[in-house]
Computed example of a mutant assay.
Amino acid sequence: MTPHHLLLGLAIIFAWGFNFVVIRWGLDGLTPMMLGGLRFLAVAVIGSCFFAKPNTPLKWWFLYALPISFGQFAFLFTAMEFGMPAGLASLVLQAQAIFTVLFAILFLKEYIRPYQIIAILIAAIGLMVIGSENNDTHMTLVGFVLTLVAASSWAIGNIATKIISQKGYSANVNLVIWSCWIPPIPFFLCAYFIDGSDLMWDSLLHIDITTIATLAYLSIFATVGGYGLWSFLMSRYSASTVAPLTLGVPVVGLTSSAMLLDEHISNVQWIGIGVVLVGLILNTFGGKWLKALSR
């Protein structure tokens, strides 16, 4: 990867890692469902001006958007509202890689390699360590569990992406952007039944500049810009070269959350974080290492 393209990759890592701090700020001004609905509405309106409509049939838009856009962020935003620290959320959400492997085995009948089993077990142990240590930190068990549900929703979206590709359709950034017209519907419906119409209108009528800036970051930088650059890199380099960059996201998330949100992580949780990262690294690079050793 050229130095210029590596800088673009680092920009994506920062945008997606800092994204969790911005979400925390956004939840100070909007309810989880309103934040989700307005975010994806903004992405749809802005992104549709820059990316062509995909050739994927509408039914596959729903298969993709409902789990990965609505499900993932409805549970993530709710988790952070109910006590999941932004930094830990950025790490625990990466469990999607493990859930993706498990769901691929269940639904796509894919073969699981021994190193992937070991990686899943290591990451699971790390997650259990993090989840068990919630007495002396800001994290709640409810927030932790909801974040895991968000990660599983992301994984279901990954399986949907595989299915769409197998059907011969494009599952690229164009689908990501245009499918954002779908999640505002369930988000606003949930906001109506959970928050009530009065709170919905009040949050819109009294929206402040901080909340507008938050929505701008989440839609323009984290989604349109982030996925646009990610698609650019994926089109020029192998997936094995680009995909590992996401391992830097929780590093940025944990660091920025500690600096800007004063989040406290216990020593035991740091151990759990390290164990999870070992599992994720093994899952990402294990195949490449085995090929190198077999030569």
Results as ranks from 00 to 15, higher is better:
8 L>P: 01
14 F>R: 07
17 G>F: 02
19 N>R: 01
20 F>E: 01
20 F>S: 01
20 F>P: 00
22 V>G: 05
24 R>G: 00
25 W>Y: 12
26 G>M: 07
27 L>G: 02
37 G>M: 04
39 R>P: 13
43 V>E: 01
43 V>G: 01
44 A>P: 15
48 S>I: 10
48 S>Q: 12
52 A>S: 13
53 K>G: 10
53 K>D: 13
58 L>H: 07
58 L>C: 13
60 W>C: 08
61 W>G: 13
63 L>N: 04
64 Y>I: 08
64 Y>D: 13
67 P>F: 00
67 P>Q: 02
70 F>G: 06
72 Q>K: 13
74 A>Y: 03
78 T>G: 03
78 T>K: 03
87 G>M: 05
89 A>Q: 12
89 A>W: 09
91 L>H: 14
93 L>R: 05
94 Q>T: 04
95 A>T: 15
96 Q>E: 10
101 V>K: 02
104 A>S: 14
105 I>Q: 05
108 L>F: 02
111 Y>N: 09
111 Y>R: 08
113 R>M: 07
113 R>P: 00
114 P>M: 07
114 P>I: 10
114 P>C: 04
116 Q>T: 05
122 I>D: 11
123 A>G: 06
128 M>I: 13
132 S>V: 11
134 N>R: 06
137 T>E: 12
139 M>C: 15
143 G>V: 04
144 F>Q: 15
150 A>Q: 02
152 S>V: 15
154 W>D: 00
156 I>E: 14
156 I>P: 13
159 I>W: 03
160 A>V: 10
164 I>L: 10
165 S>Q: 09
168 G>I: 09
169 Y>D: 13
171 A>S: 15
172 N>F: 14
175 L>C: 11
178 W>K: 05
185 I>F: 03
188 F>Q: 07
190 C>G: 08
192 Y>E: 11
195 D>K: 12
197 S>A: 14
203 S>I: 05
205 L>A: 10
206 H>T: 09
212 I>V: 14
214 T>M: 06
227 Y>H: 11
229 L>W: 13
231 S>E: 09
233 L>Y: 03
238 S>W: 03
239 A>I: 07
239 A>S: 06
239 A>L: 06
242 V>L: 12
244 P>V: 04
246 T>W: 02
247 L>R: 02
248 G>M: 04
248 G>A: 00
249 V>K: 01
252 V>Q: 00
254 L>P: 09
254 L>E: 08
255 T>D: 03
255 T>W: 00
255 T>V: 15
257 S>V: 00
261 L>M: 09
262 D>Y: 02
263 E>Y: 02
263 E>A: 05
268 V>P: 12
270 W>T: 11
271 I>G: 06
271 I>C: 04
273 I>F: 04
275 V>Q: 00
275 V>H: 00
276 V>H: 08
276 V>N: 13
277 L>V: 15
278 V>P: 01
279 G>A: 05
281 I>Y: 02
282 L>C: 08
282 L>E: 15
284 T>Q: 14
285 F>G: 07
288 K>D: 12
289 W>S: 06
290 L>Y: 00
292 A>S: 04
292 A>Q: 09
293 L>F: 12
293 L>R: 11
